[in-house]
Design a protein around this nucleic acid. Structure first.
Lengths: 188, 188
DNA sequence: GCGATAAAGTATCGTAACGATACTATGGTT
DNA sequence: AACCATAGTATCGTTACGATACTTTATCGC
């Protein structure tokens, strides 16, 4: 039954949200602030701007601007103006910010459930849910926010990885991070 | 990779939330109000109380009390005092409330994605994600809120279904609804 | 080049969510 | 009857959130 699947996903999402909420209040942050910080810990250096946070979380610019201000005041992020494009502000996690995330993420209860699954189920889930997400991204008109390495602009050269959209070299870690400019690569 | 799976689920949850938000604002409701109404449309007659909404959504009593008040004022639910237990208030959807949900739920984009999947993938997903949810419910100390028919207290008699915990007869529809008293039945 | 438009970001305001606290009323237990 | 647990409401302060208006910088058309 399709509808039932939606219910199940929704309930899962609810429980995940609840677990995240516990983590955030334990660290003295509001839920949105935690979500924003989490995003910033997962995105690459082209995507750590207020507008990217805005699109990722599905909120408005003004709201996010305030959220960021609080995170800055609490010492979890710092603002750095972009050298080339002076409209842009980059948000870097301080070591406190990074530590806050790494001490509470990923959500332990959910991870333990995944751990219980057999390797084959895990692999299966990974495939199918990825597929689902990529189609869902296409169906909704939101930005994709996928991982760099799965992007059509991602290139491997003799000197390492590159982004062919932004014409920038990428180090290995970065190819695992999520990017605002992400565009789905066709599976061959 | 386990962590990656968590990310994927989280992003899926995010997109689902965004789609729900669009639906709610389109119908002139706040996100929480919509969530509460959605729950009330899915729960059985033992679980349509403010406290059940509270536990399902993971909020506090006071907050939910206010949310309900708004839903009542807007004409989407009505309050009915319980005959036996006078502490309880039952929240029934008005026809307007029911119509609001049925016109916007399930989320069309997500459903269309599920539709794209093959029958076998759908079946697979259904199994695995159900399993995941049931284990996650056990891992977290929240109430389960599962479907009546999968509950240990669910009985089939010659006269129809019964709840052996509350000693009440159940009609067929009700066994599909979610219940606050739900307790997972062991799979044999 | 110049002007128009778009994009990134901030500030401010009003509404509403949310948790905390304190309270009432009913039910259950011994 | 005394006590405690449960369901619910009311009120208060903090904060999220969208809307609007604004500034600054890039980009696009010519």
């Amino acid at each position: 039954m399709k509808n039932e699947l939606v219910y199940t996903f929704e309930r899962l999402a609810n429980l995940l949200k609840q677990e995240a909420r516990t983590a955030s209040t334990k660290s003295g942050l509001q839920a949105v602030q935690y979500d924003a910080l989490l995003y910033l810990s997962r995105c690459n250096r082209f995507s750590n701007t207020p507008i990217a946070v805005t699109e990722y979380l599905g909120l408005t610019k003004g709201t996010v601007s305030q959220t960021i201000k609080v995170l800055e005041r609490k010492g979890y992020v710092t603002k750095v103006k972009d050298k080339e494009d002076k409209r842009l502000t980059h948000l870097n996690l301080t070591s406190e910010g990074a530590q806050l995330i790494s001490s509470s993420y990923p959500p332990p209860d959910f991870i333990s459930v995944l751990d219980n699954q057999s390797k084959s189920v895990q692999a299966l889930l990974s495939n199918v849910v990825h597929q689902l997400l990529s189609e869902y991204r296409n169906a909704s008109d939101n930005r994709a926010f996928g991982e760099c390495r799965y992007c059509i602009y991602h290139r491997q050269t003799s000197k390492g990885y590159r982004c062919s959209l932004l014409s920038q070299p990428l180090n290995d870690d970065e190819t695992l991070k999520i990017c605002r400019e992400f565009s789905e690569r066709e599976v061959e």
